[in-house]
Amino acid sequence: MLRNGVLVYVERDADPATPLQLTLSKSRLIQLAGGGTDSDGIDVRGDIDVLKQILGVLDQGDPDFQIVLP
């Protein structure tokens, strides 16, 4: 679920009206969120353009972001 700019994992049965359903591992999800759309490991059911829309609103992470400052 994507709400208020936050992508939240919710485990539940898929609604038949859902435009896109993805089945993938946690590590593949992390790659996908980082922009890695080329590798295998995603089972896609539905409209792949929905995934492109979701990825289009996510900001790329800053690899130089300091989580802990000295």
Rank of each mutant, 00 (worst) to 15 (best):
15 D>S: 08
55 L>G: 05
53 Q>Y: 01
42 I>L: 13
29 L>M: 14
45 R>T: 14
54 I>V: 15
61 G>T: 07
26 K>E: 11
44 V>Q: 01
14 A>V: 15
55 L>F: 04
17 A>Y: 03
57 V>S: 11
56 G>S: 05
67 I>V: 10
68 V>I: 10
62 D>S: 08
4 N>M: 04
25 S>C: 03
30 I>D: 03
21 Q>W: 10
18 T>A: 15
42 I>R: 12
41 G>M: 07
4 N>F: 02
15 D>T: 01
54 I>S: 01
11 E>T: 07
9 Y>F: 14
57 V>D: 00
24 L>P: 08
27 S>A: 15
59 D>F: 00
45 R>C: 03
63 P>Q: 01
65 F>R: 14
11 E>S: 13
50 V>S: 03
2 L>F: 11
36 G>R: 05
23 T>S: 15
15 D>L: 06
7 L>F: 13
9 Y>R: 12
6 V>S: 14
11 E>F: 10
13 D>S: 14
68 V>Q: 05
49 D>W: 00
51 L>P: 11
62 D>V: 01
51 L>K: 01
42 I>V: 15
27 S>L: 09
64 D>Q: 12
67 I>K: 07
34 G>E: 12
69 L>W: 01
37 T>H: 05
6 V>Q: 14
25 S>M: 05
52 K>I: 12
40 D>I: 04
37 T>A: 06
17 A>W: 02
55 L>K: 04
50 V>K: 08
55 L>W: 03
16 P>S: 13
40 D>Q: 11
17 A>F: 06
6 V>P: 08
22 L>W: 06
65 F>I: 06
51 L>M: 08
15 D>Y: 00
2 L>W: 07
61 G>K: 09
36 G>E: 08
51 L>F: 02
3 R>W: 07
28 R>A: 09
22 L>K: 11
54 I>G: 01
56 G>W: 03
18 T>S: 15
35 G>D: 07
60 Q>L: 07
4 N>I: 00
14 A>W: 11
20 L>H: 07
42 I>S: 07
21 Q>P: 00
68 V>F: 11
27 S>I: 09
58 L>C: 10
7 L>P: 02
15 D>M: 00
7 L>A: 13
19 P>C: 05
58 L>W: 04
22 L>S: 10
39 S>I: 10
16 P>W: 08
39 S>D: 15
21 Q>S: 13
48 I>D: 10
24 L>R: 05
3 R>S: 12
53 Q>V: 11
38 D>P: 01
56 G>K: 02
31 Q>W: 04
67 I>N: 04
13 D>P: 14
37 T>D: 02
6 V>I: 12
35 G>R: 06
15 D>Q: 03
52 K>Y: 14
4 N>Y: 02
8 V>W: 06
42 I>G: 04
57 V>K: 09
3 R>G: 04
6 V>N: 12
30 I>M: 07
18 T>F: 00
56 G>E: 05
23 T>Y: 11
25 S>Y: 00
57 V>E: 08
44 V>C: 02
33 A>H: 00
9 Y>L: 15
30 I>C: 03
26 K>C: 09
12 R>M: 05
31 Q>M: 05
23 T>I: 13
2 L>A: 06
43 D>I: 10
19 P>I: 07
27 S>H: 13
46 G>H: 09
56 G>F: 03
28 R>Y: 09
43 D>C: 01
59 D>H: 07
36 G>Q: 09
58 L>Y: 08
64 D>A: 14
60 Q>G: 11
55 L>M: 13
65 F>S: 09
47 D>L: 06
22 L>A: 09
34 G>M: 09
